[in-house]
Design a protein around this nucleic acid. Structure first.
Lengths: 344, 344
DNA sequence: CGAAAGGAAAGAATCGTTTTGGTTCTTTCC
DNA sequence: GGAAAGAACCAAAACGATTCTTTCCTTTCG
């Protein structure tokens, strides 16, 4: 049915191996023969079978993407489409394809990755998150699979190529910004505690408090999911305190949106009653009400560099381990204001 | 290096074919042998090579996703992450993987699809859009590749399984809603003219005008890209008219956001000066200022059904052609108001 | 008791490439 | 004129499964 390399060979009166070399444009074949073979290919409408090539080659030109949860859930946060945009851009130039992991529970995702990797479906993997004691990362390392992580590995960061922001500094700057505005009761709303990005941003927040001589209050630290609902939950908790914060560092725009929602429901105004600075600077931070002051972490770049470096690693096994830090910038909008003592 | 079926066979003292059958859990193998083989697999840490299996099998358990433009661009519109969420959900249950097309120009995308398909990398394809005279669709049909389109095929819709909304009706209802509010100068802002979804929504809009006896004005029809910038452009055009519209039917939320931006820049209020109803009901329609009245087209469902039906088609070649219509609902928020004659 | 029947596993071909190791034929040079 | 070198191509063995066909044992029954 399908036309194979053999059919082409027959038609061009050469051996299959010759056809293969013509495809690879090997210098060992004369121009005359190449031309003849190429004509035969055109005439028969030949297209190489990638699967067969992959088998012989042990390379698939496919990169696997691993999300922290089911794609179904993760894609609710604009971070992921955006990071994939960057990856896609980088990958396109090098003619690689992308494959998404599906899998709902952590165990399923793990199995999915094992299948991808052992099944030799992908040449390398990008982890779109980094968390403490991640089985998947351990597995990839043990199996010596080319991979890059977006975020900072929990341990042995110097042994793993990764692309990250300087989240500690970014969070410190964000917090300092609020301090400069006169705030003293500043809360931190982070994502899952096991995510390194949460830890780093929390550390930056702590540093800023410390060097400003402000008290670090445990009840001002809340962790929820990186979703709108997470922000809502977090804000409810904080508002139930005897002395609620006057400013918030929120680790994610979508969460901040939830925070905003809850605040509005409670009749509190931003930035009048509460100031907010969040992270990611995705589209919604621009259109929320009020527009959010947010740390732009250059998500697109994170993805782009991750993919670029993974491909280098795949194509050159001796590529050194790298750590790539993408710069961030605080984008000031309208969710922060000077602290005003209660007017009463 | 890697442990293959042969190693397992040797270890278990059976033939490779027997091991293969054990993997497939064939009834032709006795329980005793199965157990023995399974133990050998465990001991050696065997994992089947998917590529080899695919070659022998002519099936990859992978579904290709084709976007209308580069992933890099398309992912700017929340429609795509959302539709992939649905696809991902459906695909996960059936143990399929997803592969994204990358490719910037139309020609590149076409080549990408040909590679996917001829290279036998995917068992089927989902087209995430539908446009007139689409080469890719023609190709898939000619090659008899299992595929499903999201949207309505331009021609021969009865020969192609597709998942769509009743866009004509949805647009008619949206327009009628504006008419009921007393508007008479209603403009239509659509996406690319070649997209069937644009055509259908335009038809619905026309129908509504006609049955209400309102004039159909060519200068009230604008087509731009399904991006924020598209909406901005469109609005600028409309505002330059001698008699600008008092209400808009916008075919996409992200575009509507651009429209909103431009309107705000011009000092016009929504819904005070202009009423807007848009499509998709993605998150941003909820958080925009004002929140948009938008037609919820159930994007998640569109994706889910598309994937589910594609898999049925792949697994049963005799599956009949289907057309699946996903219901829509108009979600009323705060971007529409009664028409008020200029106060002056 | 011996042949037929039937179950379990082995053997070998196949899937469509790549790649290693030849072979053949022409050219070069003493 | 003949050996050596080199160009151009061919044949066959991977790659790691699946699957069709065959073979080998047991049973069963007249």
């Amino acid at each position: 049915m399908t036309v194979t390399i053999k059919d082409v060979a027959k038609r061009a009166n050469v051996a299959p191996s010759t056809v293969s070399r013509v495809i690879a444009d090997s210098p060992r074949i004369s121009e005359k023969t190449k031309k003849k073979v190429r004509e035969a290919m055109k005439e028969l409408g030949y297209h190489p079978n990638f699967i067969a090539r992959s088998l012989a080659n042990k390379s698939t030109q496919v990169i696997g993407l691993v999300m922290p949860s089911s794609a179904d859930k993760a894609f609710q946060n604009p971070f992921f489409p955006e990071v994939i945009r960057g990856i896609s851009k980088a990958v396109h130039d090098r003619q690689y394809a992308l494959q998404l992991s599906t899998g709902e529970t952590e165990a399923e995702i793990y199995d999915g990755v094992v299948h991808m990797v052992q099944g030799k479906r992908v040449d390398g993997v990008i982890l779109l998150y980094s968390r403490a004691n991640d089985k998947i990362m351990a597995y990839l390392q043990k199996e010596d699979v080319p991979f890059v992580v977006i975020g900072k590995p929990h341990k042995k960061a110097e042994e793993i190529t990764h692309v990250d922001n300087d989240n500690v500094r970014a969070a410190r700057e964000a917090t300092e910004y609020l301090i400069e505005l006169g705030h003293e009761r500043i809360a931190f709303v982070g994502g899952n505690v096991n995510l390194i990005v949460t830890m780093d941003r929390l550390r930056g927040y702590e540093k800023a408090l410390k060097s400003a001589g402000l008290a670090y209050r445990k009840d001002y630290i809340v962790h929820e999911e990186f979703l709108k609902e997470g922000g809502q939950e977090a804000m409810k908790e904080l508002l139930s305190l005897a002395e609620p914060p006057t400013a918030l560092v929120v680790a994610d725009d979508l969460m901040a949106l939830g925070v905003l929602n809850t605040l509005a429901e409670m009749g509190l105004s931003v930035p009048g009653d509460v100031s907010i600075v969040s992270f990611n600077n995705v589209l919604l931070s621009e259109i929320s009400r009020p527009p959010l002051t947010s740390v732009d972490i250059n998500i697109f770049q994170l993805g782009f560099e991750a993919a670029r470096n993974l491909i280098q690693q795949i194509e050159n096994p001796n590529e050194p381990i790298k750590r790539i830090i993408i710069p961030h910038t605080l984008v000031k909008r309208f969710s922060c204001d000077y602290y005003k003592a209660p007017s009463q």
